[in-house]
């Protein structure tokens, strides 16, 4: 299991975290190519079912880049997104999947270093958990 590189799905937002993730790329701040990003207008629009679906299909973890207080669309989106995360974690528990596979953190439009750090730390935490789909 030593060469296991966790696969992470990131939900980012168009105007806040996505520019931060772009900036990490522009600065050639490397992170695992097993990190895939889906961009939405606001994190309060993420469905818990999508998170569960991602884990079921082979992602080892889902990272939600929340807007903090910068969201221009939904002022209380962080609180709403936190609820979505809790709902997704409850669904995962029902399926005997570790709730720690879902993580949320605020990421701003210039938070390139923070993104790189999150990917590293979350990747390490997931590596400890092992693959989400255990070998039969």
């Amino acid at each position: 299991m030593s060469d296991f590189t966790p696969k992470i799905l990131v939900f980012s937002t168009d105007t806040v975290s996505d520019p931060g993730i772009d900036l990490a790329g522009r600065n050639k701040m490397h992170y695992s190519p097993n990190v895939y990003v889906i961009t939405l207008p606001c994190s309060s629009g993420i469905k818990p079912q999508w998170i569960v679906h991602a884990i079921a299909r082979g992602f080892d973890g889902v990272f939600i880049a929340a807007d903090g207080s910068d969201c221009a669309l939904v002022p209380d989106c962080t609180a709403r997104t936190a609820k979505i995360v809790s709902a997704a974690q409850a669904l995962l528990r029902e399926r005997s999947v570790e709730p720690q596979r879902v993580k949320m953190a605020a990421l701003c439009s210039v938070c390139a270093e923070a993104f790189q750090k999150h990917m590293k730390q979350f990747g390490e935490a997931l590596r400890k958990l092992g693959p989400a789909r255990k070998a039969a």
Binding site: D22, G25, M29, H30, Y31, P33, N34, Y36
Partner: peptide, 21 residues
């Protein structure tokens, strides 16, 4: 589809990985 900022540049250290992604 963003394969520059969120792929080629972010994984310029791993060509095989970047191509797969």
């Amino acid at each position: 589809v963003n394969i520059r900022e969120q792929c080629s540049w972010a994984h310029s250290d791993d060509k095989a990985g970047a191509t797969c992604k």
